[in-house]
Every structure is written in C-alpha cells, then in structure tokens.
Write a protein that binds this DNA or RNA. Structure first.
Lengths: 205, 205
DNA sequence: CAATCCTGTGACAGTTCGGTAACAATTGTA
DNA sequence: TACAATTGTTACCGAACTGTCACAGGATTG
C-alpha cells in the first residue's frame, strides 16, 4: 500500500486500532476479522458507531454469513484472503473516491435536509443548529428513512450502549429536543413519528 | 435473542436440555459443547436420533476437529465463541427459514396484506394501525394461513404463557379487537374465522 | 327441552408508554 | 472562577394498551 502512495498506520489488535482511529485522522480502515482481543466484527461495529470511516473487511473465512454480517454491521466492502494486490488497491481507491463524493451525500425528506458530511441540518433551506447528540440521533433515523427503530436499536446505534433499562428515558428526552428544533409544531410531529410500543421513525414525505 | 422476538427456553445441562426438548415444541437448539454431564456432541447426537430439530453448536474450542465432528454428527451449523450477536441471529434465522419454521416476509390473503419485516398491516392498500399484541396475534395466525390454531397454541406463541386457564378470555377479546380493525363487518368475519371448539384461523381467500 | 359449553360483546380498571418540564451533572469557555 | 451549553435524570400527567369481568345468545349434548 505504501508503494502505491498511501500513508499507512497499522495496529496489531482491535483495541490498538480503535485508539489509533481516535487519535489520527484516518480515511479508510482495512480490518482483519481474526484479531487478538476484540472480535473484528465488533471493532467494525464500534468504528461505525463513532465515526464515518469506510471499512474493508479482510478474512479467510469465506462463508456467506460472514460477508453478510460484515456488511450488515456497516462495512463498505469485504475481501477474502488470499487476495491479490491489485484487487485490494482497486477496491481501496474506489472506496476513497466514493467516500470523497459521498460525503456530500445528503438525506432529504419534506423540507428537511441533512448534510451528513458536514453534519448540518436544514429546514426550509435555513440551517438548524443541532447539538452532537441530537444530530447523531437524527442521522441514525435518517439512514433508514421510514423505518421504525426501537429504543434498543437507537440506544445501540446512537449511544453505543448494549442493554440498559434507563435508555428509554434518554431517548424520550432527546426525541423531544429534536422535535422542538425541526418540527413546525412539536406537539403534532410530521417528521419524527412515534409508533407506540415499537419505536420512532423519520417519515419520508 | 429475546429482543429479536424469539421465544427462548434454556437448560443448564445436557440432561435438562434433552428433557426440555421432549416436553416442549422446540424449533431450534443452540448447543454448547462444554457441558456438565453429557458431552455436547453426545447431546447433539441424541437430538438427531429422536427429532428433526436443527442444531447450532457453540464452542470456544476452535480446532477444526471439533467443527468436523460437530457437523458430522448432524449439527446444521457451528459458531465459535466469542461470536457477535448479529452473526448468531442471522444464522439462526437462516436455519429457521430453511427448515420451514420461520415466517416469510409478507403474507397476503384477500385484501389483507401483512408485511412482517416492518410489522405493518394493510387492508385494501391502506395501512391499518394495530397495537403490538393485535399485530402479534395476527402474525401468528398468518404464519400458517388457513390452519386452525387452538387457544393453547395461540397463548404459547403470542403471549409465551404455557398453560393457563384464563387464557381463553384474553384471546376472545383480542380476536374481537382484531376483527374490529381488519374485518369489513366484524359481526360477519371473513378473514378471522372461528372454528367452534377448535380455535381460530386466518382464512386464505 | 333443559343444562351446559363456547363465543361474542361491551364496559371497566390497572398498567404501561410516551410527552413534557424542571432539575442536576458534566463539560467547555471566557 | 463564573457562566453557558450540552446531556442525563427524575417526576408527573394523560392517553393508549391490555387483561378481567359480566352477561347474552347460539350451539351442543344428554
């Protein structure tokens, strides 16, 4: 990779890798599934929770289920070992280009516009200032527009908590705060809808 | 697994597990290799002798020989510890679908459409809002369209109660509530039919 | 034909769930 | 240090959900 002109940092364990990502500005992660310490898929999961970095998974297990769970967890691509050089650099370049452009990718529903690259939100073409948590919650919901997400899912995707009874509360309150900012009438939500007993969704208008 | 909507029974030893299988209607077994009492592989063997239940083996020994003997003995799949929970549920779902015990993603009869992945119900292409319990009851019935289900079965599949005399009441009432929402004329049911003395069924039209 | 069982029906009440506001803890900043 | 913004915590209310009950009427059985 260095021969190809990439600037490479490496880590020998999941923990070390995650620390590296926190510290440095990383454009893309090549991730081995078989790791000492944390499982590779778990590492991928954690990266996706906190960052917007594309991940390519490397693995020698070539069962389909691994591809699926790798991609479901949010990995952008998957390469089986043994792979050849050329294929790897090709996929990396493709992803870097895509993420360079995709960073302008935005989510739109009704008069609501979410620019995911800049983490900015607009309503009626006017910017709405959201706090980090509010933004993250909205983005997670926006990533699957019109899909109901339970509080367990939101808790995991937004806060990274796995199970936690108190989570219903913090979601309630943060939904409330979001509504105050992006709903024309927060008491009659049009965008952030409640599905009683199931969860919340961002409506596709 | 319970969060994912599965109904889970657990046992702490091979003997207990085998007894459970004899007593309950089990769709799939997650089996740990390292067990007190009988060896896990032996348990798998005995299950396969007497039943047709898919078995997934869990193990922290990741030697190949274990995979082989696990699969040779008739286990349908094998997961190494530590596994991530998405991978596990994916494999479980895959197996349940393959063995015909898992619901399809969409059920249709007459003008009634049930989207099981989104937990949404449509009548005449218009969405009908159901409460969680109502939905679950309908889904269970839709899962085996045109099959009469006794109140005991419904009680187990919808509420998870095993035996309970009072159950007839809550089913009566919930059937009533469902009919009010999805029947054109609730007093003359066309979809949710009563088989007196046997139970209820969702008619295939 | 009467007694009994099963189901349909409406009303009621306890519980859960989501909306709301105010407060407390934490963090960042001047 | 003081102040402000952010974020989690708690309490309370009202509405929705869901189980219980009583009763009626039709079917079944002896």
């Amino acid at each position: 990779m260095q021969d190809e002109g990439f600037l490479v940092k490496s880590a020998v364990s999941g923990e070390e890798g995650l620390a590296l990502i926190k510290k440095e500005k990383i454009d893309l992660v090549l991730l081995d599934i078989n790791l000492p310490g944390i499982n590779g898929l778990e590492v991928c999961n954690r990266i996706k929770i906190s960052e917007h970095i594309p991940v390519i998974i490397l693995s020698c297990r070539d069962e389909d289920s691994d591809v699926i769970s790798g991609l479901e967890i949010g990995a952008e691509d998957y390469i089986r070992k043994p792979f050849n050089h050329k294929e790897l650099t090709l996929r990396v370049k493709k992803l870097l280009i895509r993420s360079g452009r995709e960073e302008q990718s935005s989510i739109k529903t009704g008069k609501l516009l979410i620019k995911t690259d800049r983490e900015e939100v607009y309503f009626n073409s006017r910017e709405v200032k959201l706090t980090p948590m509010e933004y993250k919650l909205l983005e997670v919901l926006g990533n699957k527009v019109d899909w109901v997400m339970s509080w367990q899912v939101l808790l995991r995707k937004v806060w990274g908590y796995e199970d936690w009874e108190g989570g219903r509360e913090i979601i309630k309150v943060n939904i409330r705060r979001l509504r105050k900012k992006i709903e024309p009438d927060p008491s009659q939500p049009v965008y952030l809808l409640t599905e009683r007993g199931r969860g919340y969704k961002l409506a596709q208008l």
